[in-house]
């Protein structure tokens, strides 16, 4: 069992997202994240899907996706060199000046931006890999009492020249 990544080209039509996500729930596949947006062709959407599965199930998932009429192309990007980032906002509430400066330090270490602030709160805007976001969340939750998080799921594109994510 491990995380796998699929880049899925689909018809940009009503119901396609429901159909794809319904496949994962209906067949008991373990969906981790799914993002969707249009591409350079306005009638084509591209989904980035992360699923945790064994080899056999993953093969089956790809085949099931492939046989959907609305699916144009299934690309397994699990081991492809690619750029992959996820947008995350973290709001840290009820903090004093000391904790504020801690947040700024963390932001510097993780190379993320403090994008908004109030008297006793800050918002971090983080564009990181999913793993780094996971780590950042862990740290924030440990250090501060009131943290609220929203994250978008990762999007990915095959890389041109680099081999690192």
């Amino acid at each position: 069992m491990r995380d796998r990544w699929i880049s899925l080209y689909v018809e940009n039509q009503v119901g396609v997202l429901a159909k794809v996500s319904g496949l994962f729930s209906g067949k008991n596949y373990n969906l981790q994240s799914l993002t969707v947006g249009t591409t350079e062709h306005e009638d084509v959407s591209r989904m980035t899907i992360c699923v945790t599965s064994d080899d056999v199930t993953f093969e089956q998932i790809k085949k099931q996706l492939n046989r959907m009429v609305e699916v144009i192309k299934v690309v397994d990007i699990t081991s492809a060199p690619l750029h992959m980032k996820e947008l995350l906002y973290a709001r840290i509430n009820d903090i004093g000046p000391d904790e504020m400066s801690q947040v700024f330090q963390l932001a510097e270490v993780f190379k993320v931006r403090v994008c908004d602030a109030g008297e006793d709160c800050l918002i971090l805007e983080c564009l990181l890999t999913t793993e780094s976001n996971d780590e950042l969340i862990k740290l924030l939750k440990k250090k501060f009492k009131k943290v609220s998080i929203v994250r978008g799921g990762a999007v990915a594109m095959e890389s041109i020249s680099i081999s690192k994510r």
């Binding site: 119901g15 429901a18 009429v69 609305e70």
Partner: peptide, 30 residues
Amino acid sequence: VGMTRSVVKYGVTVSDRELLGRQMKMAFQI
């Protein structure tokens, strides 16, 4: 269409009169 999604090869609500012919043809092809 939502209710039958997992038991059809393809299902769609025709949303434009100009798509009717195409979508009927798709049905008979698929």
